[in-house]
Design a protein around this nucleic acid. Structure first.
Length: 363
DNA sequence: TTGGAGTCAATAGG
DNA sequence: CCTATTGACTCCAA
């Protein structure tokens, strides 16, 4: 085992697994609609329970945690101490940087998390519970840097050789230098994403047939289209959770509504390369967004109509086929998401009604 | 099999 | 370096 910087990651995580009992156990589901403390992190400070519990057990017993408050605090601590997500993630959470970034940026509400999904939050809470942990992490950082410096010093300025990048295992892999049959990682072009999003709006759960069509029309592998839908649905769902969290967080403290809501309404296109998606401002304004009129009511009632083969072309509306241009960014992303969510619900209802895929029957 | 939840890990920007 | 994004994968449940 080469002295990889993060080699100790797992150990650290392990070491955390002891001690503590998170906030009150008990499964008293309390909506807890209190104004909530302005200061996040109730941090009931778990007692020094020397319990040799595994995180799994702790997660199972843990009381409801405020994931938003926890991530907020973690981000604060990390930035204040110049600690990166990579180090934190690998040594404390056992996750990669990208995952940490995602987790910290959009934590799902506790009640929507699976047991597995709660684990990182329990770990974070645990980590935060003892300020000495920050010191430890900073020490690790120093050690890493030291090792790094040493390495590049004594390295003959050359010999890039084999970068010890491998977690472990991968012995020799003696075989041929191999062409690194790495798949180049698909990167969807903006137009492709747009087309997929449009398709999603019409049908969040496309039938295999539709997927196949989309794939061929866009010149993508079927699996790519499938993956895209999986990912997109999942991410849309998460966005909705976020709204939920933020709405809940802002209740109590009435915001003087400044008529802005930069989100929907006008989405000055022209912006260029980045259509779609406006950041989620903390504005908790929406309060009860129930007053949003659907307006985009998909054919709900019995009339579920599937698009017939070929109708996919509409997705391109002079797009790819007619060479570029395609203006239609004028759509509130929020509204769009909600509409899609509606479709989602409808899809489930239909399925539940045992009347899956409406096929293409005409009347 | 299909869909959801979590993640990984490549990569684009800073 | 660091962080954010995102296509693909692994597990799991229905």
């Amino acid at each position: 085992a080469p002295e990889s910087p993060v080699s100790s990651a797992e150990e650290s995580v392990k070491s955390q697994e002891q001690a503590v009992a998170l906030p009150v156990p008990e499964t008293s589901e309390t909506p807890d609609s209190q104004p909530s403390t302005p200061v996040p992190l109730p941090l009931p400070l778990p007692l020094p329970g020397p319990s040799g519990l595994t995180i799994q057990e702790m997660v199972a017993m843990s009381a409801e945690l405020d994931t938003y408050a926890i991530t907020k605090k973690v981000k604060e601590v990390l930035t204040d101490n110049n600690l990166g997500q990579r180090l934190f993630g690998e040594s404390i959470l056992g996750l990669t940087q990208g995952s940490v970034s995602d987790l910290l940026a959009r934590p799902k509400p506790w009640h929507k998390l699976s047991l597995k999904g709660r684990e990182p939050f329990v770990r974070m809470q645990l980590w935060l519970s003892d300020p000495r942990n920050v010191e430890k992490l900073m020490d690790m950082k120093r050690m890493e840097k030291k090792a790094y410096m040493k390495r590049r010093h004594n390295s003959v300025s050359e010999a890039p050789a084999v970068d010890s990048n491998v977690i472990m295992g991968d012995f020799g892999s003696t075989c041929s230098p191999q062409q690194h049959l790495k798949k180049p990682r698909v990167v969807l072009a903006p137009e492709e994403k747009e087309a997929l999003k449009r398709a999603y709006q019409q049908k969040p759960y496309p039938s295999p047939k539709t997927i196949e069509e989309l794939a061929s029309q866009l010149n993508l592998k079927t699996s790519t289209v499938i993956n895209w839908f999986h990912n997109y649905r999942s991410r849309i769902r998460r966005e909705l959770f976020i709204e939920e969290i933020q709405a809940a967080a802002g209740e109590g403290a009435v915001r003087v509504g400044e008529g802005e809501s930069s989100c929907d309404g006008t989405e000055s296109d022209s912006g260029g390369p980045r259509p779609e998606e406006c950041g989620q401002s903390l504005s908790s304004s929406p309060k009860s967004d129930h007053n949003h009129q659907p307006e985009e009511t998909p054919s709900a009632s019995g009339t579920t109509e599937d698009q017939k083969p070929g109708s996919v072309d509409s997705l391109f509306s002079a797009g790819l086929t007619a060479a570029a241009s395609q203006r239609n960014p004028k759509d509130s992303s929020v509204r769009r998401r909600k509409a899609a969510n509606l479709n989602n619900i409808i899809h489930r209802l239909e399925k539940a009604a045992n009347r899956d895929e409406p096929h293409e029957w005409e009347f």
